[in-house]
Design a protein around this nucleic acid. Structure first.
Lengths: 234, 234
DNA sequence: ATCGAAATTTTTCAATTGCTTAAGCTTAAA
DNA sequence: TTTAAGCTTAAGCAATTGAAAAATTTCGAT
């Protein structure tokens, strides 16, 4: 997607040279379908493995194995491990971004209280459908790395700010209390899915089942809407 | 602690042989203090690194560097990486186990509602003081590995069952609802600490500060005690 | 003091890591 | 059909990995 297949076999440095030549070059070709399939298989595997084992715990060879593609293809389609990580992350967070924007649009004309309820509901569903996102996030949020800065600046902050506005408009939350509301929201709506294998072991229940998710949605919504301290809404 | 320094340089297999010889051997010596210091330094470093980077993402050399001890000492004091992980984990979960038992004892004679309030409060404080525990747990809870089985069977289940008893005695939670209450409790009380670097970036606030923790305790308690649906207690 | 075990230090080794190179093979534009 | 870009395959590299072995130092019971 964000790939530059403009390299013959001379590596990255030759890009400038390649660009100069491009002016005089008549030939220009599209990405082939088989490549797109390969890239997609690699991306899917990368998301799973990065989410499950973290950046350092994931090896390129393993990604290739899980993806079922041949040795060397990751380094061809994605220049290096860092770029692969970024591609995986952009895919997952791009999904969240789209989802959030769609919902913001959809619920725009609802009364605040009702709107935040829908937001919570749809967010829980999203987390259930995409546990990798929170898993990736937890991997990175633990230490102050360039990768964390990238995620926060690019994806998390805008979503958080919109959520803050939406929540504080509907609920009697103080400005400096929102931080906790936010993490309670996050924790309440993601933990059970991020830890799905544990919950299976511990309670013998598959929390990914539709009926289970419904229940979780209901409880979380009630939970987060009930104003702390007894009040109900603004 | 659970170490067996009874190896000359012949590795694990020689333990039986070593035991036989032990009967005829007159000399028997205690663990030296310098060794205990080394072991402790390694354990501390291991907890931090395993929590931060996961099992596969942590290298023995890195543990030794962070611990500030010489190459080879990890493999001397802990037979292998797996044993090191188990030692780190036992340390952290042992702390939780002790903490939980102490509190159970301490709050035994309180009325149920009050007891669960204290339990929540003390649990939040514990999570703030030991974010590595939840980080380690999140690392392992994501996939069904032998390591997860070990943690759940040894530490998590007993604590969960006691918590279930304590919570259901005090709050109107249905049997099959408890799962969600549990993970909301977990998520609400740990996420902000596991993701402390993110919250610093996102809100510019150090959530580990005592005043902040107090606030979190208050909110979480109110949150989790407010009966879903409007009721208050049994 | 001194002997031997415990602990540390230093080397060594095979396997795995990220990454590069060099061929070969497909495919689509000319 | 040609032909070069796009793609795949395979081999190889230096660095890092977990683990063990060897060499050396420290320490306590005799």
């Amino acid at each position: 997607m964000a790939q530059k297949p403009t390299k013959t076999r001379a590596s990255a440095k030759a890009q400038i040279e390649s660009k100069i030549k491009a002016a005089a070059r008549p030939r220009q070709r599209a990405v082939q379908e088989r490549a797109e399939i390969t890239i997609e298989k690699i991306r899917v595997a990368a998301i799973r493995l990065f989410a499950e084992r973290g950046y350092d715990g994931t090896s390129i060879r393993e990604v290739e194995n899980v993806a079922g593609v041949n040795r060397g293809l990751v380094n061809y389609h994605f220049d290096n491990k860092e770029a692969l990580w970024k591609a995986a992350l952009d895919q997952v967070f791009g999904l969240l971004e789209t989802h959030t924007k769609d919902r913001a649009e959809l619920y725009r004309d609802l009364p605040p209280k009702e709107r935040i309820a829908y937001v919570i509901r749809s967010q829980v569903r999203f987390n259930a459908a995409h546990p990798e996102l929170n898993q990736l996030m937890m991997q990175e949020a633990k230490s102050d790395t360039p990768r964390l800065h990238y995620i926060v600046d690019t994806y998390v902050r805008p979503i958080m700010e919109w959520l803050q506005h939406t929540a504080m408009e509907a609920l009697p939350i103080e400005q400096d209390e929102f931080l906790y509301w936010y993490y309670m929201f996050l924790g309440s709506s993601t933990t059970v899915y991020s830890m799905a294998p544990e919950s299976k072991l511990l309670f013998g229940v598959d929390v990914m089942e539709e009926k289970m998710i419904d229940r979780h949605v209901a409880l979380t919504t009630e939970f987060l809407l009930t104003r702390i301290g007894g009040e109900t809404a603004k």
